[in-house]
Amino acid sequence: MTKAKVTILDIARMAGVSKATVSRYLNGHYEKMSAQTKEKIKQVIADSHYHVNRQAQSITKKQTFIIGIIVADIENIFSSMLFKGADQVFENVHYQIMLMNSDNSQQRERQQLERLLDLRVDGIILQPISQHAEDYQFLADTHVPTVIVDRKLTPERWPAVVTDNYQYSKMLMDYILRLGYQRIVVVSEPVAANFPRQDRYRAVQDTCQRQSVPTSLIEIQPATTDDELYRQLLQVTHDLQDKAAIYALKGTLLMRIVRILARYQIAVPSEMGVAAFDDWDWATLTSPQITTIQQNPKVMGQQAAERLLEVLAGKEPPMLTSVESEFVVRQSLTK
C-alpha cells in the first residue's frame, strides 16, 4: 500500500500551529514567529520527511523560486565568494540560484539576461559590465526585481551593494605616502572598464597630486607578457632608483607582480614596496606578506541577496549599501 504524502495541514496539526503559520515558515517569513515555533515546525518537517513541491508552488503563486546571478568573471575568486554569500541567504528562504557568467562581455551579458528573463526568474543580482543605466533599459522594462552588486550604474536605477573603493584606496595612499615613497606605480587592467578601478585610481591621483608625488599607470592587456611588465616597472622607476611602491588594483594582478619581482630578484620591500586591493587572502601567501585593502565579497553577496528579498517582499531598500573592507598592514612597505 502506498504511503500517503504528508501535507502542510498534517505538518500544522503535528506542530500544533495553523496552516498559515506553516506556510509562512516554508516561505521564509519568520518576522512574527517565535524561535520556539520555528524550531518545532522545523523538527516536525524533518521527522515526517516532508518535501516542498516547488513546481506546484510556482504554478499556484506564479513564481519560479529561481534567482539569477550574473557575474563578470566566474574564474575570479570574488565571484565565488559573492555567490557563496548570496546562496547562504537564499537557501534559508527556499530559493534556487542560477549562476551565469558574462565573461566581461556586454554582448554575452545581454544574452544571459535575456535567458534569465525567458526562464521567468523571480529576481536578478547583476555585476554589470556597462556603467550606463541606459544599456539596461530592456531589463528595466520587464520590471523584474533587480539588485546591482560591486559596481554602480549612472544614473542609479536599482539598489546597489558596493565597496567604498575611493575612500579605502585613499586610506592606503595616505599610509604609503607617510612612509616616504617618492613614486606610486599603479598596475591594473584597463581602468576605464569599470567603476571600482576608476574610483581606486582616482583616489591615487587625488592623494598624490596634493602631496606632489608622481604616479605612473601600467595597464595590463591580455597580450602583456611578464617580461614586458618587468621592463615597464624598471622604466617608470628609473631602474629602481626611485623609492617606489606598486599598487595593484586587483588580487590576481598582485600575485603576478609578486611572481615577477621574485623571478627578477627584486627584493620587497627594500627595493620595491607592494600593496594591493585584494578580493581574497592571496596577500598572506607571500613572503613578506602584502599590505592590502581586503574586500569582503561574501558579505556583499549576502547583502545583495537581502536587498533583493526586500524588493520581492514589496519593501523599498536603500539605493546604496556600502560593505566595509579592511585595511591590513603587513611587511611589504617600509620607511
Rank of each mutant, 00 (worst) to 15 (best):
Y50H: 13
L253P: 00
Q131M: 11
T225M: 02
Q106V: 11
D47W: 05
L99D: 09
Y230C: 10
M81C: 11
T321N: 07
N76V: 01
A20S: 15
I257R: 04
V22C: 08
S188R: 01
H49I: 09
K250M: 12
A223C: 08
D242N: 03
I220H: 01
Y201M: 01
F78H: 09
V258K: 11
G180E: 03
K38V: 04
K19E: 09
D122K: 10
K40R: 14
I41N: 08
Q127H: 15
N165S: 08
I290L: 08
A46D: 12
M255A: 13
E109T: 13
H238G: 08
R231E: 15
H49E: 15
S169R: 09
H143P: 07
T37C: 05
D87E: 15
Y30H: 14
V162N: 01
E91L: 05
P128L: 00
M272L: 00
I97Y: 11
Y181C: 04
Q303H: 10
S80I: 12
Q36K: 15
Q294H: 11
A276N: 07
D199C: 09
A4I: 10
V187E: 04
G85F: 10
L308W: 07
R24H: 13
K243V: 06
R307A: 09
N53W: 10
Q63G: 00
R108M: 11
A275C: 15
L254N: 06
S105I: 12
I11E: 02
A160L: 05
A46R: 12
A313M: 09
K32A: 06
A72W: 02
